[in-house]
Design a protein around this nucleic acid. Structure first.
Length: 415
RNA sequence: GCCCGGAUAGGGUAGCUUGGUUAUCCUAGGGGAUUGUGGAUCCCUUGACUCGGGUUCAAAUCUCGGUCCGGGCCCCA
């Protein structure tokens, strides 16, 4: 037996039905916010992902050479491809540009619950606008998606990486070492951050100020403690979010979101029930387009871990009930089989999902099968009813049944 | 990449400590019975010790390694 490669999964029909249902829910939510779906290649020029990345990123990249010696990589995320697409084909489109995507990504990591090597991300990017309303719109979309999934237990944390970057720069930390410092601060490893900063000749009181900054956590009242314009900016973001009915978040300047390309507002959503891999969503504002040969354009985006958000729902007890088919057509006797075939075909032409026995089973076994495929109705084709161009229609849930003219069968089933 | 735990029919499990007949039970799949009606019952049947090496007269059981899953760390673009 050959099993799935490590960190990948098969999705069975019941899984897929559930996943499609929730994918479409996300799509629908994005569309109600005026975002439009895109799709990019599942592999890209490896350079696209290497351009702005550190060594850790490379370690986890599925990179390979194709037969034409091209350096390619399976996409580890979809923000870079989206911005590449924007630079290549959408840079002259009316701003702002609102796009979303759903698809699998690949990272060579150690799998555990909620973490796979092939995983699915849903994301949105709002390109070409840098206002507080832009950030609010994006956060509200993320919040709406999570809310529409019925998840109760989650936390939105909003931060501003520009504040920290500025404080660190003012403290005299060289630009190329900012990431190193930010990483320690993200983990709140002050014991390690302090000697690191001291080694860069940062004064002790300045270090304390930086630590205080990352410890700035709470409701909108803490915004008064945010230095520079960022406090005002975030207040405008939260005011706008309030107007849009989103209030369940906190301000947390310790949100750093890794070492990446974010420049201003950053946010993340956690579902504590998930354990180690509890982050279900992350995003912020950034500029990337200039790296891919375009003009510098401000964007805000986020990505939701689809597998994790499904897991979070399961942990909260949400169960998806598979839908089943509309009708199963049974012939009472073998001489009715062709008539039954005609009828199932008629139903299908009318866009009714209908099935019929093809294994030569007797009526009773066929009825059992109809039940197992969760058919709403059984259409019983027998000689008696056929004399009046009719069939028996059985409601599989209630068990009630009635004789129905074939000409009225479709409309009866459609209800 | 590091530490730890696990893997027995399609799904869920007993057996493993203390090696020993045909590997337990539930469920599921196929067929049959009740002969124009499913989710009930009965009968027949299909189907598993994760893979490879070692110890032994004998391995599901002890042992080593691989694979995969899970808990934590690293990382999380």
């Amino acid at each position: 037996m050959i099993q799935c490669p490590r960190g990948t999964r098969d999705f069975l029909p019941d899984d897929m039905e559930k996943r499609r249902f929730y994918e479409n829910k996300l799509r629908h939510t994005a569309q109600t916010f005026g975002f439009r779906e895109i799709e990019t290649p599942i592999f890209e020029d490896a350079e696209l992902f290497i351009l702005r990345s550190g060594p850790n990123v490379l370690n986890e990249l599925y990179a390979f050479k194709d037969k034409g010696d091209r350096e390619l990589a399976l996409r580890p995320e979809m923000t870079a491809p989206s911005i590449r697409m924007f630079v290549n084909s959408m840079s002259n489109d009316p701003k702002p540009i609102k796009i979303f995507y759903f698809g699998q990504c690949f990272r060579y990591e150690r799998p555990q619950s909620g973490r796979y090597r092939e995983f699915f991300q849903f994301g949105a990017e709002l390109i070409g606008s840098a206002t507080p309303e832009t950030d609010a719109e994006v956060i509200c979309l993320a919040a709406a998606m999570i809310k529409n999934f019925g998840i109760e237990n989650y936390k939105v944390h909003i931060g501003h990486i520009g504040v920290l970057r500025e404080a660190i720069a003012n403290a005299g930390v060289p630009k190329e070492r900012t990431a190193e410092v930010l990483q320690k601060l993200d983990k709140k490893l002050y014991d390690e951050a302090r000697p690191l900063l001291e080694s860069m000749n940062v004064a002790s009181n300045v270090i304390d100020e930086i630590f205080t900054l990352t410890e700035t956590v709470g409701g909108t009242e803490v915004l008064s403690k945010v230095p520079g314009d960022a406090g005002d900016y975030l207040r405008q973001v939260t005011d706008c979010m309030h107007a849009m009915g989103v209030d369940n978040y906190d301000i947390d300047l310790g949100v750093v979101r890794g070492l990446d390309y974010y420049t201003g507002m950053v946010f993340e959503v956690e579902a504590p029930a998930l354990g180690a891999e509890k982050q279900i969503c992350g995003g912020g504002s950034y500029t990337l387009s200039e790296l891919f040969g375009g003009e510098k354009v401000f964007s805000t985006g986020f990505a939701i871990g689809f597998d994790r958000i499904l897991l979070a729902m399961e942990k909260e007890g949400h169960v998806y009930e598979p839908k089943g088919i509309d009708a199963y057509v049974l012939s009472v006797t073998d001489d009715m089989r062709l008539k039954a075939a005609e009828i199932v075909s008629m139903l299908r032409r009318e866009d009714i999902s209908a099935d019929i026995d093809i294994m030569g089973r007797k009526m009773q076994k066929a009825m059992k099968y109809a039940s197992s495929v969760r058919s709403k109705y059984a259409v019983i084709v027998g000689a008696k009813e056929m004399e009046e161009e009719s069939v028996t229609l059985r409601d599989m849930t209630s068990g009630e049944q009635s004789v129905v003219k074939i000409s009225e069968l479709c409309s009866k089933i459609k209800g």
